[in-house]
Nucleic acid binder design. Structure first.
Lengths: 359, 359
DNA sequence: TTGTACGCGTTATCAC
DNA sequence: GTGATAACGCGTACAA
């Protein structure tokens, strides 16, 4: 590896002049500039960041701290989004997965300090509340996909599950559905409860009677290894007396179960039952036939936006705390799994009937 | 950030002594050791890797170069595996996604050099053949999930698609299936062709007549944005004169389509048709009802193993080229989507019949 | 057992 | 415009 001195010697200038050229500083004669560039080419010189860092204290490196990576393969898009921002802005990224282990997390913070990282993205792989204090973070930190209950001064970037679910529920009602099944995600999840709350609020706002709503929990247990009974739940719902005309699912994976459950019973989607999901996990939502109407979790954008916010903090111009925090929209993705109900079927009066097609 | 000198001053020793304590070198009086440790604690001193690196040339950092991340969310497990190895061995990892762009890849190599990275994992997100030359790699490199046709001297770690598919095909035949549908993955994919080749070889070896095999292509087009017609293909297969008793799918996503296609037609799985996949994408294979019998792509292990191999190269003890290259097994995961055929249905004579249950 | 002098590759300061 | 010279935080070599 040639050093700046080698270049200087070959170009016949001092090392400082090479430094000027490399860093595009002013006050270099064009002729000198060319000679130096040539020498750099010839030698294949690449500046050494470590040496630069020793002096200048700017590492141009961001750290990403990640918890249960295995929960779902999709949330990794957060990391991708962050990487995209980083590389577009001359930053490099170091990722450490803690798998939820406290010691590993401690070690990660230390690693970050050793590398003189400028700031870290603390990302959780599902939307949740955490207990972090700003004083626990030795480096500038932005929370992604989570918020701290313990310390409001930590900036966070989270998805707006509430509004996503709200839009979905309104859409379903606008399509004329009145008998609704709702399969809840694991209640342990913060995002899950937000979605359910939105559903309840909208349904109440529209004056839908409780009797025409069926709510069941589809998953339960420890996050990452929950038991999924949504297949069975779907079938029970569809076999009850006045079955719902639409089943709203806590997320797309539950929606997949709902599809399988409904199809196995011989129900057609959306002719016999409409189904909506949440998250827009593409390998599910786009693969389903008919494709699933859902709300898109903006994972990639979460990562990208959070990096911007972190950069704001680092460069000191950043607002902090709830002022700087952002909730990002989960836009509805309308596909073919929701059928508009004809007027004749919209009344609640036929609540005893079964909208299923007969073949 | 306190430096080694600050610690030295507080502890009342020279900086070299602090260095000795930090690096656990011998010849430090226990008493001194304690005093220094105390000062480190008090000041929150963390050694600066950059400074260390300027002298010692060992960055303890690995680079990961990654192409089309978006192809599937699952292959990211390769990166996880590599990270796991790294953090278990005191290494840190820098990941750069190129999205298949050549300029980005060039820039990535440069970034790696700037960071004095010790070696890089060149990982592709689907199993394929590439054109890389060892001379294109300014740093020690190991190929993951791909092999170079241009240069055999590059070590590679790849999944053994052939053997995975072989095991699956044998299993299906052992369960008595003779009329077989095979839905091929995009033929552009190297792994896809390996799987198909294994299927053909086994079927020939067992003397299954061509007439009882139906082969169709389920996906085609540019990788990452292919058109998927496997849903329709499945339905066509099931509606033909002597429908297959089992459908073997190029991967789990096709298997999902096969489930949907079959269920929609009113077929039961595995009573009416058995289905097998490939890859073991858990959000599909475990979610399906009944759960899918498939072969597991060892993504995580690929990343882990490749890191070991790379470490071998770096520390100079490594075999190179095809000698050091590894093909990793894709073990069959036996679940409930394959039904053993009763002896009465195993003969090829009933090739005109339809094994479907009548309700 | 401990300390001193120096060098690593780079940037900062200031004089030329 | 350009170049000495010092300094960054740490490890190495050697002296004490």
């Amino acid at each position: 590896m040639p050093s700046i001195k080698d270049v200087a010697r070959v170009a016949g200038v001092s090392d400082k002049t090479v430094s000027r050229v490399v860093n595009r500083e002013p006050n270099v004669k064009p002729e000198t500039f060319r000679r130096v560039e040539q020498a750099i080419q010839d030698l294949g010189y690449v500046p050494n960041r470590a040496a630069r860092l020793v002096r200048s204290r700017k590492s141009q490196v961001l750290g990403i701290l990640t918890d249960l990576v295995s929960v779902t393969p999709y949330s990794n898009d957060i990391v991708r989004g962050a990487q995209a921002w980083a590389h577009a802005n001359g930053y490099t990224v170091i990722v450490v997965n803690t798998n939820g282990d406290d010691d590993t997390e401690k070690a990660a913070w230390r690693t970050f300090q050793e590398h003189s990282i400028e700031g870290v993205l603390y990302v959780t792989m599902y939307h949740r509340l955490i207990n972090l204090q700003a004083s626990d973070c030795p480096l500038p930190t932005v929370l992604v996909n989570c918020r701290s209950t313990a310390d409001q001064s930590l900036i966070s970037v989270t998805p707006d599950d509430y509004r996503g679910s709200q839009a979905l529920t309104r859409h379903v009602l606008e399509q004329g559905h009145r008998r609704i099944g709702y399969i809840r995600l694991n209640p342990v999840l913060f995002g899950a409860e937000e979605r359910y709350r939105a559903f309840q609020d909208v349904v109440r706002e529209w004056g839908i009677p409780d009797a025409s709503i069926t709510t069941k929990i589809g998953m339960s247990g420890v996050v990452g290894q929950e038991i999924d009974h949504s297949y069975q739940v779907t079938q029970n719902m569809l076999q009850q007396d006045a079955p719902p005309t639409v089943i709203m699912c806590g997320n797309d994976e539950i929606a997949l179960q709902a599809y399988l459950g409904a199809l196995t019973l011989g129900h057609r989607i959306p002719d016999d039952v409409s189904i909506v999901g949440h998250d827009d996990f593409k390998t599910v939502s786009k693969a389903l036939k008919p494709a699933l109407t859902t709300a898109a979790l903006p994972y990639y954008d979460l990562g990208f936006r959070a990096s911007e916010a972190l950069y704001g903090v680092i460069s000191g111009e950043g607002a902090t705390g709830s002022a700087g925090s952002v909730k990002m929209d989960c836009p509805m993705v309308r596909r073919e799994s929701v059928r508009p109900l004809p007027d004749s079927q919209r009344s609640l009066a036929d609540a005893g009937g079964n909208a299923r097609h007969k073949d």
